[in-house]
Design a protein around this nucleic acid. Structure first.
Length: 606
RNA sequence: GGGGCUGUAGCUCAGUUGGAUAGAGCGACGGUUUCCUAAACCGUAGGUCGUGGGUUCGAGUCCCGCCAGCCCCGCCA
């Protein structure tokens, strides 16, 4: 509907200019008329679009709103382009103008979708010539970002899933997306890890990758325990940090070993979730940190406070009500994460070969970091590291909570490992499937059962997360996400399975007929839903809210299920049979495309 | 103390620049299967949109106050 809506906007503006000539407009009238006055209809029964400006104009030009609406509607009907696209406009209620697209236009859009792999979603065009400043199309999405030597847990779930989906949407729109995994691979915790490693497996320091640490988490715990209990160990650990930062060879080898071990574990999860990421951890920015501090110093932004180099921002207050500093360099000379984040911003926005040359930076992290990013972005602005036409944004999300409304934990109160979460979802999906096979006396082999339960389990976890507005906290529930009814992954998957079933039973989904016809309201409802895809994707691109796409796919599945339930397809006579198969084909393509943008795989049978 | 987010049906949540009678799903209750997977579909009940003001033709949406919950706030990331 994107194309149609653009066309209609032009038509409407022409009509508004005729009815309200520009030279006669008061400033207020003019501001009302230059808004986007064509909006999607608020309810299906009102048609496809509505125009509300008659109501806002009424007081200003002292005419009854219905009278104004009538004038606009009359003018619209004098326009040939309008008559081509729409049925006669309706004036409703106090002065709304309701527009509905005529059948020929809808059908011709359907023909276009049958041949278009992008299903009508435009590819962004980036032309350097168009923009005065060298504009590129590179976006960086910073997401997932687990810590080396620790295990991925629920906390990483949302960032990973939401970040991946946003990356997929922006890629599809035509942006060049750099998916950055800003892993925690540097910092004081490595002192204790390396010290512990040196004592437990000393040979690890001389040869690369000879050691396999099977249980890195346990290893971390042991190191932490010793660090907390043993003073001598603490001393060694601190000096080990210095060694590492100085680039001492043995320490570097140990550090790399730890990183590699972790990397392998992370990769297992990413593979299962089908998520692609480029690792570029905090350590990458080490070499820039000194320059960052110098640059800030030269710009007179740094203030020395109790030995630490700080920046005080307006309006940032601490617990005691005093101004709250952001520490750029600690009193011992070490750097903080704020410094690393600043270096990252600068690097990412700097043109190649000295940086990534991106124009938009997106950080997918929990909402708790909002003030941190606010501060860091402010500093980057003050330091003039954010060029014009570039944008830097924090995309926050809420906590994952258990069904008790509290932060999700195991029964014993520990953080839940991501692996366990995935395994449990799959296991539950498997049980559901097996129960169902039994009650239906169906037989399926093990590989089918495995494939279906894996797909259902993983999709359920992803979809449950994505379908919620990311800003609010999210209540995690296996029962709800795996439920076969409601706004869940299995419900969407099932709609696709139904279409695949039609194809198996002899329905040719490769429709090339030139004689497509529709008569039933269920058909028109499905057509209208199908044509909304482009608008929805544009919205997700702009608002970075994947739940909008989920909501759309759910509505589409509902509309399809109604159609499927109430209208015969294979048994219909021509040309209805082929026409309905065409709708099935586009529905399947739309669902598959939409779900692929959510990072969710689909099935033919389940 | 300062800042952020949230508050909508019994439960979990949508609600796009302010627009028509506030929407889904689950749960509850009732109905539908000689037919493409009933993992579906149809119907009924259920609301002072936390609260009090304000802005206006019109507010869940914008502004101000208050209440409740969660989160963040100096050398961890």
């Amino acid at each position: 509907m994107l194309k149609i809506s653009t066309q209609l906007e032009e038509v409407l503006n022409r009509a508004l200019t005729k009815v309200f000539p520009k030279e006669d407009r008061s400033p207020e009238t003019s501001s009302i008329l230059t808004r986007d006055n064509l909006v999607p209809a608020s309810k299906p029964e009102f048609g496809d679009f509505q125009i509300n400006c008659a109501l806002s104009l009424a007081k200003e030009i002292k005419q009854p709103p219905r009278h104004i609406a009538q004038q606009i509607a009359d003018q619209l009907q004098k326009d040939n382009d309008f008559l081509q696209i729409c049925n006669a406009p309706n004036i409703a209620g106090p002065g709304f103008i309701n527009l509905s697209i005529n059948s020929q236009t809808l059908i011709s859009e359907i023909y276009i979708r049958l041949k278009d792999k992008r299903l009508g979603v435009p590819l962004k065009k980036f032309s350097a010539a168009q923009e005065k400043v060298e504009q590129n199309n590179r976006v960086i999405i910073d997401f997932s970002s687990p810590n080396i030597a620790k295990e991925m847990h629920v906390g990483h779930l949302r960032s990973t899933i939401i970040g991946d989906s946003l990356a997929r949407v922006l890629e599809f729109c035509g942006y060049e997306v750099l998916r950055i995994n800003h892993v925690g691979d540097w910092g004081t915790q490595f002192g204790m890890l390396i010290t512990h490693l040196k004592e437990v497996v000393p040979e690890a320091l001389h040869k690369k990758d000879v050691v396999e640490i099977s249980d890195l988490v346990n290893f971390y715990r042991q190191a932490k325990k010793r660090f907390d209990e043993d003073e001598d160990f603490q001393k060694k650990s601190r000096s080990e940090v210095v060694n590492l930062q100085a680039g001492e060879e043995g320490s570097l080898t140990a550090w790399q070993l730890l990183c590699n071990q972790s990397r392998k574990e992370f990769q297992k999860i990413y593979d299962r979730l089908d998520i692609k990421l480029n690792e570029r951890g905090e350590s990458f920015y080490n070499k820039f940190l000194v320059d960052i501090v110098d640059d800030l110093k030269n710009k007179n932004l740094l203030i020395n406070d109790q030995g630490a180099k700080c920046i005080f921002l307006d309006g940032l207050l601490g617990k005691d009500g005093k101004p709250q500093p952001i520490i750029i360099q600690k009193s011992d000379g070490g750097f903080n994460y704020a410094t690393t984040d600043l270096a990252a911003i600068k690097y990412r926005l700097t043109k190649s070969p000295d940086g990534d040359g991106a124009f938009r930076l997106i950080y997918v992290t929990d909402a708790g970091q909002a003030s941190h990013f606010f501060g860091v972005f402010q500093i980057a602005k003050l330091a003039k590291w954010i060029p014009r036409n570039c944008q830097v944004e924090h995309v926050p999300f809420g906590l994952v909570q258990g069904e008790d409304g509290k932060k999700l934990k195991t029964r014993s109160g520990e953080t839940i490992r991501l692996v366990d979460l995935l395994d449990e979802a799959i296991q539950r999906a498997k049980k559901d499937l097996k129960d169902r096979l039994k009650t239906e006396s169906r037989f399926e082999n093990e590989s089918f059962i495995d494939k279906v339960s894996t797909t259902v389990g993983i999709s359920a976890i992803k979809y449950a997360d994505l379908s919620q507005n990311r800003v609010s906290n999210y209540q995690f529930s296996f029962d709800k996400m795996l439920s076969l009814q409601g706004n869940t992954a299995p419900y969407l998957l099932y709609a696709l399975v139904r279409i695949a079933g039609i194809s198996r039973k002899g329905g040719n989904l490769n429709v090339s007929s030139k004689n497509i016809q529709f008569n039933e309201p269920q058909e028109w409802a499905l057509i209208r839903k199908l044509l909304q895809l482009d608008c929805v994707i544009e919205e997700v691109e702009k608002e970075l809210l994947p739940n909008r796409l989920c909501g759309y796919l759910f509505e589409l599945s509902q509309t399809f299920n109604r159609f499927y339930d109430q209208i015969p397809i294979l048994k219909a006579s021509e040309p209805s049979r082929t026409s309905r198969l065409a709708l099935c084909a586009i529905t399947a393509d739309t669902l598959k495309l939409g779900m692929s943008l959510l990072g969710i795989p689909t099935l033919d049978r389940m």
